[in-house]
Design a protein around this nucleic acid. Structure first.
Length: 581
RNA sequence: GCGCCCGUAGCUCAGAGGAUAGAGUGUUGGCCUCCGAAGCCAAAGGUCGUGGGUUCGACUCCCGCCGGGCGCGCCA
C-alpha cells in the first residue's frame, strides 16, 4: 500500500484494516472501521475495536478475529506492527522513523500543514453574528463571532470553499425604534421637552448619533415637535403601542427626512459593527441586507412558491404557513392581518436565496435562545422543495457575564451590556478569541469579567503563545538559518518525549478534520493547549542547543515544527502567534 | 404544561458505546549559576445528579425522577 495521501493518518490505517478484513469477513456488511487514539500510552499510537464489533455477526471470539486481522495487515510505510490487546482491541504502533520524520514533514508543509481535502471544494456558507444593527455588539455576540470566524477558518482548512456572511436585519420595526430614539435624543439637544420611553434604545451611542445630526443640521429636524404633539401618542395605555404611535408621529412630522435619520442611524451602527468585528479579527465576504429581499421581490416570490405548493392559508385575516405539516409544533404567520410580513417571511426568502446561490452546505450560527426557530425554517425549506439536510444550525449558548460574583443583566434596549469592544480593550483580542472557543458552543459560558480583566495573564492563551515565543527564542539563540532545518536528520530523536511530541504533531491534521466535521473549534483550542504542555515539559527536561550538531539540528527541527503547528492552529482561531512576549 | 439543551474533581470545563474517566484553575510541597519560571515536577482531589433498562461492555444509548438554563407572539 502506498504512503498515505491524506495528512489524516487514521484514514490510511483504517484502509489497511479494511484490506485485512475483506478476506476474513466476506459477505458481511462492512462495519465502520474506526481508528482512534487510545487514552493509555501503552496501547499503541492508534487502536481499533472492529474485532469487538464483529464478534457477534461472525460468531467468534473477538481476540481471534483481531489476530486474523493483524496477520493479514498489508505493509505500510507508517505502520511498524499491530498487537491484539485486552478484550480484542487491535493496537497499532507507528514506525519510529515515520514519527521522527513528522517534524520534517511539518516544516516542509509549513502553513499548509493541517489542511486537507476533506471538504472536496464543497461550497459552504457560514452565516454568523447577524446582530440587529441597533447598537454596539455585546459579549454575547462576541461568542458567536469568535465561534463563527474560527469555524469558517477550520472549514476552509479542511478543504471547503467558505463564504462568510452577516445577515443585516435592516427591515424590521427595531430600525424604526432606533430612528425614533435618535430623533428624540436629537430633540433633547435642541432644547425640547421630548419624552423618551423606557422601551426606546437607551444607550449613549444614540445620543452620540443625535449629536452628530445636530451639529451637521442644527434644528432642521425639529419640525412641529412641540410637547403638545406628543400628548396623543403618550396617551396610549400599552407601552409598545405608545412606541408605535411615537414612530408614526416621527414619520408624520419628518416626512421624507425620516428616512434620512433612519438610514443615517442604520449606517452608523453598521459601520460601528463592522469596525468592531474587524478589530476582533472577524471579517465577512457579504453583508446581506434583509431589506433587499423585499426590494428584489424575493419575499413575494418565496411566498408565492409556498402558495403554489398549497402550504399557505388565510385565517383571521393573516396568512399562515402550514409548518405543522413539516415537523413544527404549530403553524406560523408569514403575513400579518395589517399586511406586514413577519420576520419569518423574510427568513424563508433569505434561506431560499442561500439555496439559489448554490451553496452545498449552509451553516447558520444562532444564539441558542432561537432553537425553537429551527423546525420552522427547516420546515419551510422542505415545503419549498429544498433539502433541509443541507442546512445545519449551530446553536451557540449566550455567554453569561459575572461581575463581582453577580450575574450582569443584559438588555440592549435598557442599554445595559458589556460591549465586545470593552471586553477586547480589557482582556485583549487574543485572550478573548481564545477564551470564547475554549468551550463547546452549545455549552453555557460563564464569563467572569473580573477574572478575565484582572488576571488575564492566567488565561490559557498565554500558555500556548508562550510556547511559540519560546521556540522563536531558541531559534534566535541558535542563530542558524531555519530554512536548513527541514533537511535535518531526525533519526537521532530517541527520547520518549520527542517521539510523543512528534506523534502529537501527526495528530494535528486529524484534529482539524474532526473540528470541521463536528463544527467544533474548541477541539483545536484544546489540542493547542496539549501540544504546548508537551512542549513546555520537553523543553524543561531537555537541552535543545547541545554540542553535538546532528542532535542539535534534529531537536531544533522538532521545536520549529511545534512552532509551525502552534502558529497554524492559532491562526485558525484568530489568535496571534507572537515571537516575543 | 409542552419542547430543546445541560448536571463529570472545591471552581470552570473536555470526553459521547470500549482498556486504569482527563485538563485548566485552586490547595500542598519541590525546581532558575544552565536555550525565556507567563514554565516544569510531584502530591491531593470522583458513587460521572439519581433510579431503572438495553449491551460482552454505559460517563456515553433508552425511560422515569430531581436540579439548572432557554424557548413556546399576527415580536424581531
Amino acid at each position: 500500500m502506498a504512503a498515505p495521501e491524506s495528512q489524516d493518518l487514521r484514514a490510511h490505517l483504517a484502509a489497511l484494516i479494511r484490506d485485512a478484513l475483506e478476506p476474513i469477513a466476506p459477505g458481511l456488511p462492512a462495519p465502520s472501521v474506526v481508528v482512534e487514539r487510545p487514552r493509555q500510552a501503552g496501547h499503541g499510537d492508534y487502536a481499533c475495536n472492529v474485532a469487538l464489533q464483529l464478534a457477534r455477526p461472525m460468531k467468534s471470539a473477538p481476540r481471534e478475529i483481531a489476530a486474523r486481522i493483524v496477520a493479514g495487515l498489508p505493509q505500510s510505510p507508517c505502520l511498524e506492527r499491530a498487537e491484539v490487546a485486552g478484550a480484542g482491541f487491535i493496537n497499532l504502533f507507528l514506525k519510529r522513523a515515520f514519527k521522527q520524520q513528522a517534524a520534517v514533514r511539518v516544516l516542509q508543509a509549513g502553513p499548509g500543514y493541517g489542511t486537507s481535502a476533506l471538504g472536496r471544494g464543497k461550497r459552504v456558507q457560514v452565516e454568523f453574528v447577524s446582530a440587529n444593527p441597533t447598537g454596539p455588539l455585546h459579549v454575547g455576540h462576541g461568542r458567536g463571532a469568535a465561534y463563527g470566524a474560527s469555524l469558517a477558518n477550520i472549514l476552509a482548512a479542511a478543504g471547503f470553499e467558505v463564504t462568510r456572511e452577516y445577515y443585516v436585519n435592516d427591515a424590521g420595526r427595531q430600525m424604526d425604534i432606533l430612528a425614533l430614539s435618535t430623533w428624540l435624543r436629537y430633540l433633547e439637544l435642541c432644547g425640547l421637552q421630548a419624552p423618551f420611553p423606557e422601551n426606546a434604545y437607551q444607550g449613549d451611542y444614540v445620543r452620540a448619533m443625535a449629536r452628530t445630526i445636530h451639529s451637521e443640521h442644527g434644528a432642521r429636524f425639529v419640525r412641529g415637535a412641540t410637547p403638545d404633539a406628543f400628548a396623543p401618542a403618550l396617551a396610549e395605555p400599552d407601552a409598545e403601542a405608545r412606541l408605535d404611535a411615537l414612530i408614526a408621529l416621527a414619520k408624520e412630522k419628518l416626512g421624507g427626512d425620516y428616512q434620512y435619520i433612519h438610514d443615517f442611524a442604520l449606517n452608523e451602527q453598521l459601520e460601528d459593527c463592522r469596525n468592531d468585528l474587524e478589530e476582533f479579527g472577524v471579517t465577512f465576504d457579504h453583508w446581506f441586507s434583509e431589506r433587499s429581499l423585499y426590494e428584489t421581490g424575493l419575499v413575494e416570490r418565496a411566498l408565492r412558491r409556498l402558495e403554489e405548493r398549497g402550504h399557505l392559508y388565510v385565517q383571521d385575516g393573516a396568512r399562515w404557513f402550514r409548518s405543522s405539516r413539516f415537523g413544527d409544533e404549530k403553524d406560523r404567520v408569514v403575513q400579518r392581518e395589517n399586511g406586514q410580513y413577519t420576520y419569518f417571511a423574510s427568513d424563508i426568502a433569505y434561506h431560499l436565496n442561500k439555496f439559489e446561490r448554490g451553496f452545498e452546505l449552509i451553516v447558520d450560527v444562532w444564539g441558542a435562545d432561537h432553537h425553537g426557530y429551527v423546525p420552522r425554517v427547516k420546515g419551510a425549506l422542505a415545503a419549498l422543495g429544498l433539502d433541509p439536510a443541507l442546512l445545519t444550525v449551530a446553536l451557540v449558548q449566550f455567554a453569561v457575564l459575572y461581575r463581582n460574583g453577580q450575574k450582569v443583566p443584559m438588555s440592549t434596549r435598557a442599554g445595559e451590556f458589556v460591549t465586545l469592544r470593552e471586553l477586547r480593550r480589557e482582556v485583549g483580542r487574543d485572550a478573548a478569541r481564545f477564551f470564547y472557543v475554549l468551550r463547546k458552543a452549545d455549552q453555557h459560558l460563564d464569563f467572569d469579567l473580573d477574572l478575565a480583566k484582572s488576571q488575564s495573564n492566567e488565561n490559557p492563551v498565554y500558555y500556548v503563545q508562550y510556547a511559540h515565543a519560546r521556540v522563536c527564542s531558541v531559534l534566535e539563540q541558535w542563530g542558524g538559518d531555519p530554512a536548513r532545518l527541514p533537511g535535518a536528520d531526525t533519526s537521532v530523536l530517541a527520547l520518549d518525549q520527542e517521539l510523543a511530541l512528534a506523534s502529537r504533531l501527526i495528530e494535528y491534521p486529524e484534529v482539524v478534520e474532526d473540528a470541521a466535521r463536528d463544527l467544533a473549534p474548541h477541539l483545536v483550542a484544546f489540542y493547542l493547549r496539549e501540544l504546548a504542555a508537551e512542549f513546555h515539559s520537553y523543553y524543561n527536561a531537555t537541552r535543545i542547543l547541545v554540542e553535538e550538531e546532528g542532535l542539535r539540528h534534529a531537536r531544533l527541527a522538532l521545536c520549529a515544527a511545534v512552532r509551525q503547528v502552534l502558529a497554524n492552529g492559532l491562526a485558525l482561531l484568530g489568535v496571534s502567534a507572537p515571537r516575543k512576549m
